[in-house]
Write a protein that binds this DNA or RNA. Structure first.
Lengths: 196, 196, 196, 196
DNA sequence: TATGAATGAGCTTTCATTCAT
DNA sequence: CATGAATGAAAGCTCATTCAT
């Protein structure tokens, strides 16, 4: 799943275009124009438009994996790990705002089975990673045990998604890193066992 | 903001089409076909396609308001009120699954300022309602005070949105009312002050 | 298999275009231009280009049937019947020269199974009609019996096809009706039993 | 008019492609793909696509000449010569079925004057060869004199073309060599003078 | 209130061909 | 002798919308 330079260029341009104008205005023409080549030239690098959309999702899968699987996570408490995931995501989004328009927008990729499948698989992967950290935390008596791990995962991810969505819809009007960090600190209080 | 019969028919057909095939396949042709009239006939009821999209959003605003502002909320504790909102939402979604494809899908309506504005206003309204309940609950010592009301609101809405999204993406494979009710019970433990 | 006015217009324009410029230059644009409507307008009358090609073949089937099944054939000897078919064909082609570019050009319709099937079925139908006349003629001792009816049919149709092809390729330079009639008179000598 | 190895390869690949998918699917891309080189590589061997089509026709002219002008013809009766031409053609077609899709398909090469001219010249050459044999046969009292030589030629070639066309359209379902030989034996009866 | 017929603009994609390497 | 990358032109087709009836 490695991309050539041109392919990466096309993917990035596409993400920016989606962010700016919505999926419905992502056309071969708009892509080619935005990177300064002709329309047919796009087809040297991707077989068709669907393949570009799939590539965008693959690109996310990669980006996400990097954010999630970073080696920094080792030798940290569960809470510290989730905290790192939160802050890494916020850092990534801050540097690449266009991502936020697509990454939590499953509905965008609704018009084809292959797209839906890919989106679902990304979602599941993320879920598993967080869920496992949470469960380990529960075993270590770090995280409260009176609530199933899956539910805690859902609450954590739900809040992460919503704050990012609000940030984007506000036109990136607030400081995501700060607000996100505050939010996480509050959530910690809710889910930690020994919190006092 | 009342709709004629035909307008309501068009709106409902549109929501179903979006749910089935995504926004990109919502065309005047597909709408007219699905309700069995000709394409030009659509223009007797809406000036143009944008107006249909705006109407869909207005329809949501109404639906949502009903769910939120029902008189049942009076004379209930904050926790009971949020619980009611949760279960009302789940009931509504269960009866009208197509709604879920559109209601938390802000990205779908990204290609026009008027749409984005409307989506934003719906979001804000919802936020205010929940937020006020939470704050009242905090004043009454019902809900914990060590976390700002806005953050609790974000967590509650984030979890609600995410469980609905998962339900839809799973192909409505689990019992939303049950899972949602369980989730809410867990959340109660996290946000109630006197919970023990 | 009835066609609307516009459909007939499209079919006739298409045949003329094929005759003039070959199948490869039969485009939706060229058709629409030749009848003075826009390209999308074509799609009001045919679902797609393939359907136009199929309609052309259906049109041939009709035309051919008319030529073959005319009531004039009744109460005639076999030789007279074939003679009539020959002369009717030549008359038809003379009045509608474009037909000749398509009617014996099975190769033109080679790029799709549905087209090939239709062409094959037209061919077979024609073959059966002629073949039956020949066989009846053989039973009546009108036509020589020392050669299988199928082979006589092949020879008769082969000569008919070739003279028409030559006529077209010559730029319609000779008198098809006369040359064709002469050819038939010669063939009569070859296949009649009692010829002397 | 000699071809390099690569040119011959391109010509043969093109004929096969035309046979399989029709002229409309003969593209530089499909040719290059079928012989495993890049598209620009084709242009090392032919100036443009038209030249490939012309080369295909030249290739036919050669093939045909070989079939027609073989020295075997010398010292044979007219009937024997035509018989040889028939059987040589059938042998050639049997070994190279793709040929049949193109060789009698004048309509395929209809979209350019140079192509039409070349097709016409091939047709005329064939005609002259057969026609001369027939006329010699008539002078020798081998072939009946009551029918003009040109018409006999037309009948002979028409039947040859039609049986080959039928063979191809049937998916090469019958034994061309046998059926063709039978056909010729019947035709002999029709055109020989001293036949009895 | 509805429709059949039409259209300008735009879509994705393919074509033959070129050029630097 | 070959190719990767590119392109102008054009293909088939769909879109939202209009208009006469």
């Amino acid at each position: 799943m490695e991309f050539t330079k041109r392919q990466a260029e096309i993917i990035k341009a596409s993400i920016i275009l989606i962010a700016k104008k919505g999926i419905q205005n992502l056309t071969i023409k708009s892509i080619s124009k935005s990177i300064g080549i002709s329309e047919p030239a796009i087809y040297r690098h991707f077989e068709n438009k669907m393949d570009i959309l799939l590539a965008i999702l693959s690109y996310f899968k990669n980006t996400n994996s990097i954010v999630l699987e970073t080696s920094e996570l080792k030798n940290k408490t569960a809470i510290e790990q989730i905290g790192l995931i939160y802050s890494n995501h916020f850092k990534e989004f801050n540097e690449n705002r266009a991502l936020t328009s697509v990454i939590f927008s499953e509905e965008i990729f609704q018009n084809d089975q292959r797209l839906t499948d890919k989106v679902l698989s990304i979602m599941k992967t993320n879920n598993i990673v967080i869920s496992q950290i949470i469960k380990t935390g529960q075993k270590n008596n770090e995280i409260r045990n009176d609530i199933p791990g899956e539910q805690i995962t859902m609450i954590i991810m739900g809040a992460l998604r919503l704050i990012v969505t609000k940030w984007r819809m506000s036109g990136f009007a607030f400081d995501l890193k700060k607000e996100g960090s505050d939010l996480w600190n509050s959530m910690k209080k809710m889910i930690m066992k020994t919190y006092k």
